[in-house]
Design a protein around this nucleic acid. Sequence first.
DNA 1: CTCACCTAGTCCTCTAGACAAGTTCACCGT
DNA 2: ACGGTGAACTTGTCTAGAGGACTAGGTGAG
Lengths: 259, 259
Amino acid sequence: MLDLGTIDRSVDRPPYRQIADILRQHIERGRLAPGEQLPSEAVLIEHYGVARMTVREAIKELRSEGLVVAQHGKGVFVRSAPPVRRLASDRFARRHRQEGKSAFLAEAEAAGHVPGVDQIRVTNEAASAEVAERLKLKPRERVIVRSRRYLADGRPVEIATSYIPESIAKGTAIAEVNTGPGGIYARIEDAGHELAHFTEEVSARMPSPDERKALEIGSGAPVLTLVRTAFDTNGTPVEVCDTVKVATSFVLEYDVPAK
Amino acid sequence: MLDLGTIDRSVDRPPYRQIADILRQHIERGRLAPGEQLPSEAVLIEHYGVARMTVREAIKELRSEGLVVAQHGKGVFVRSAPPVRRLASDRFARRHRQEGKSAFLAEAEAAGHVPGVDQIRVTNEAASAEVAERLKLKPRERVIVRSRRYLADGRPVEIATSYIPESIAKGTAIAEVNTGPGGIYARIEDAGHELAHFTEEVSARMPSPDERKALEIGSGAPVLTLVRTAFDTNGTPVEVCDTVKVATSFVLEYDVPAK
DNA sequence: CTCACCTAGTCCTCTAGACAAGTTCACCGT
DNA sequence: ACGGTGAACTTGTCTAGAGGACTAGGTGAG
């Protein structure tokens, strides 16, 4: 039986935190195993002699830490995969180890022969305001949207969505599911837009419910987001690629410019 | 005056979420600017005609998303570092644009006259296993640990911790709080280690309680972590820099190598 | 046997109020 | 002019209760 301990109301730390502390310790020390159910609110209220909201506050703290998940009507359970706390060495590292060419071109090529891609969706849509701004689209210009999900070891790890202006994609295989050798970057270059420059914005946030589901992660784990914009030699943006990935690490390398 | 809208109790979405949605939109669209104070609980209670806990629940949601920070006795404020796209505002943006000298030297110089650094701590410690491995340290070799916290608009946004092998730091100002012109990279080069190559690992995770406190973020918001290792011309690792950053975006740029 | 229904147990949301504690500022006495 | 006090405002925490919604399991009707 789980030792729920007691709370001390004379001490500075508020009761709801003390309760959270006790439960957190049980989880961290394995006395509450992954998947196991926590004592119900009613039990905790009774045990500690506090009001409902106080217990809920404690549980909420653990939820926001990603240690537990609540299931309406069932109970609160210890998360089976604890959130990432340390840098993990990662297969993405190798992507950026390619020599003599852009790491991302290499990545695109890799995607071309589709190892570990299990879903591809290609549509023609009206551009969102954000995409329109990034691609400097004319009013009402549409975009080709290519969305794909990457797997590693059979588990989904990344969802990438590319937006290419329809004007560039026209007459190419970009709007086809199979883009041919070299992937869409090769097709963009075929269309006369030589790639010259990229910007990337890296951030992290909590996943949306859809993303959580698609990436098979718990609600307490963050996702990395990477928005890459590709420019041609004229400085025209030709592609925006929005990547959401499980927040394990990836690696960038670069050299100090020669003096 | 801020348009607080109204909530619809007939709809499926619970009131506290509707309130959070309204406030979130104001923040995202810039009608509530970074640093600006949100309407107080009392105002929101009055306006929406709900109980205090309902309003607090809404605010709590925004806090856990990292959009706002509450300050006891003062109010709730929009976080000062919103997910920005402006390249210039970010230190990382310029790294890859420097000409003729190491971007990191420039960065270190900038840090030298300490704009927006509010805490510096320098210690001599035994290296952790991870740091020892990255720096290829000999057994029992110690490291100089330099930890600093960066501010933007008066709010903490980043904690950076550098580890330099004692053998390299010896006889330099690296172990001093004030490292002199050019910062530690200049001192490392003074010591005969010309910087040549960097690797960076980027990841995201949930912050530790200490980090949450130091960066003043909500418990549901992730942090970006960046571990940079600097190598000299011999390929010897000379510094490991571990950066934990509020998970708003940062920007990387690079060009396609000439063919 | 199958299916609809009921029920106990769970978490979700909300109400209405209370006291505590931190911040700010005007006011008053010195 | 200066310093202290306190009022007014803010958020933080807690209580006691209510109805709702969801899940799982049992029960009875068909």
